[in-house]
Simulated assay, not measured.
Amino acid sequence: MTEPVQGPASYFPSIEKKYGRPISEWKSMIRASELSGHMELVAWLKAEHGMGHGHANALVAHTLKEDAAG
């Protein structure tokens, strides 16, 4: 049996379904943004793309963690 996905990635299927873009595209957009702070990026996703706070927070947290890991 496979362990269920936990943490920010658990939101990914609903983000793709609700906002119509693959997670890889959202991550590319976050990385291409001139913004760098977590909450700045969350606010940008909410304001510019109509994303809910939880979804935006999950995407930003996961992307920044990936980038920090190298």
Rank of each mutant, 00 (worst) to 15 (best):
M1V: 14
T2N: 10
E3V: 11
P4W: 03
P4T: 04
V5K: 01
Q6K: 10
Q6V: 10
Q6R: 12
G7K: 01
A9K: 10
Y11L: 09
P13C: 10
P13M: 15
P13V: 06
I15P: 00
I15G: 01
I15H: 01
E16Q: 15
E16K: 09
K17A: 15
K17N: 09
K18V: 14
Y19C: 04
Y19L: 08
G20R: 10
G20A: 05
R21I: 07
R21P: 05
P22A: 03
P22Q: 04
S24T: 13
S24R: 07
W26M: 01
K27N: 12
K27V: 09
S28Y: 06
S28K: 14
M29K: 11
I30C: 02
R31W: 06
R31T: 09
A32D: 13
A32I: 04
A32Q: 15
S33G: 02
E34W: 05
L35W: 02
S36E: 13
S36A: 12
S36V: 07
G37P: 07
G37D: 13
H38M: 09
H38N: 06
H38P: 07
M39P: 03
M39T: 12
L41A: 02
L41K: 02
L41G: 00
V42A: 01
A43P: 04
L45D: 00
L45K: 00
L45S: 00
L45T: 00
K46W: 07
K46R: 14
A47K: 13
A47P: 03
A47Y: 07
H49E: 11
G50Y: 04
G52K: 08
G52Q: 15
G54M: 10
H55Y: 14
H55R: 05
H55N: 12
A56R: 00
N57V: 09
A58Q: 02
A58R: 00
L59N: 00
V60Q: 00
A61D: 02
A61I: 02
A61F: 00
H62F: 04
T63W: 02
L64M: 09
K65G: 07
K65L: 08
K65S: 14
E66D: 14
E66T: 15
D67R: 12
D67I: 12
A68S: 11
A69K: 12
A69N: 14
G70R: 13
